[in-house]
Amino acid sequence: MAWNVLSLFTTSGMLFLEVSLVAFLLQGNYASGLEALTRTFVVSGLIVGLDLFLKVIYLFGFGVPLFVDNSEQTHQIKWGLWVFHRLVLTAVYGVILFMYHSKWRERLPARPAFYRYVCIMFIMNALALLACGLTANGASFGFWLYGATIVCYHAFYLPLLYKIFLADFFQEEDLHLENVYYSEMKDAGFFDADWE
């Protein structure tokens, strides 16, 4: 029970972060700061609330062990739900990728970082979808692949966000200037041992 509740809130929090990021960036320059945040949180709250409601019904209403993995017994309902869940996420990222190569490209953010993020998340969700489909059909490799994709998602999602969107923003200009000054002083001979 405790594991299911903890997993439910963890996955809902990660989904809220993922939906919020995409919803915020898809607004582009069409809204002001407070208006964009309000719209983002409303959209994310509705989507994650619906997802959380369905998972609670499966967990506590029907007794389907969504987060407890047991490779000895395959629950068709559980893996059917995960296939549907991953199919929706893969379809959303696939539509955004399709829009980059269509006439609706100008509606998307003009940031290359957003395109890289969408590509990585599409590949990750497509792998998880394949793994869920294989596991639903009884393949043990699918169970292993699903576990690997979930571990990679939870371990590397936040570092991925930092590297793609925030690393350039938090890079200090002073540090670069100090490196430039140091190399100029070194080239001029200020750090030679002959100063005595």
Rank of each mutant, 00 (worst) to 15 (best):
L6D: 12
L6E: 14
S7A: 14
T11H: 13
T11I: 12
S12H: 03
M14F: 15
L15D: 05
F16N: 00
F16E: 02
L17E: 04
E18V: 08
S20V: 04
L21W: 05
A23K: 01
A23Q: 05
L25G: 03
L26H: 00
Y30S: 12
S32Q: 13
G33N: 11
G33Q: 10
G33S: 12
L34N: 10
T38K: 12
T38C: 08
V42N: 01
V42E: 05
V43A: 12
V43Y: 08
G45R: 00
L46K: 07
I47D: 06
V48P: 02
G49K: 00
L54G: 08
L54K: 05
K55L: 08
K55F: 09
K55M: 14
I57L: 15
Y58L: 15
Y58S: 09
F60A: 08
F62V: 11
F62Q: 14
G63P: 05
G63I: 08
V64W: 05
V68N: 13
D69M: 14
N70H: 10
E72S: 15
H75A: 10
H75S: 15
Q76L: 13
I77M: 10
W79E: 09
W79F: 14
G80P: 05
G80N: 04
L81P: 04
L89A: 14
L89V: 12
A91S: 15
V92S: 07
Y93Q: 05
G94I: 08
I96A: 00
I96M: 01
F98I: 11
Y100M: 08
W104P: 01
W104A: 13
E106M: 07
E106I: 07
R107A: 10
R111K: 12
R111F: 02
P112A: 14
A113C: 01
F114L: 00
Y115N: 04
Y117S: 00
C119E: 12
C119A: 11
M121T: 06
F122P: 03
F122E: 07
I123Q: 08
M124N: 10
L129C: 04
L130P: 00
A131N: 03
C132V: 05
G133R: 05
A136E: 08
N137Y: 13
N137K: 12
G138D: 09
A139R: 08
A139F: 14
G142N: 05
W144I: 14
L145W: 07
L145V: 08
T149Y: 07
I150W: 09
V151D: 09
C152Q: 09
H154G: 12
Y157D: 06
L158D: 06
L158M: 11
L158V: 14
L160D: 06
L160M: 14
Y162G: 02
I164P: 02
F165S: 01
L166G: 02
A167N: 07
F169K: 10
Q171S: 11
E173V: 13
L177P: 03
L177E: 13
L177K: 10
E178R: 10
N179P: 04
E184H: 09
K186P: 00
D187N: 11
A188H: 00
G189P: 02
F190H: 02
D192A: 00
D192Y: 02
A193C: 03
D194L: 03
W195G: 01
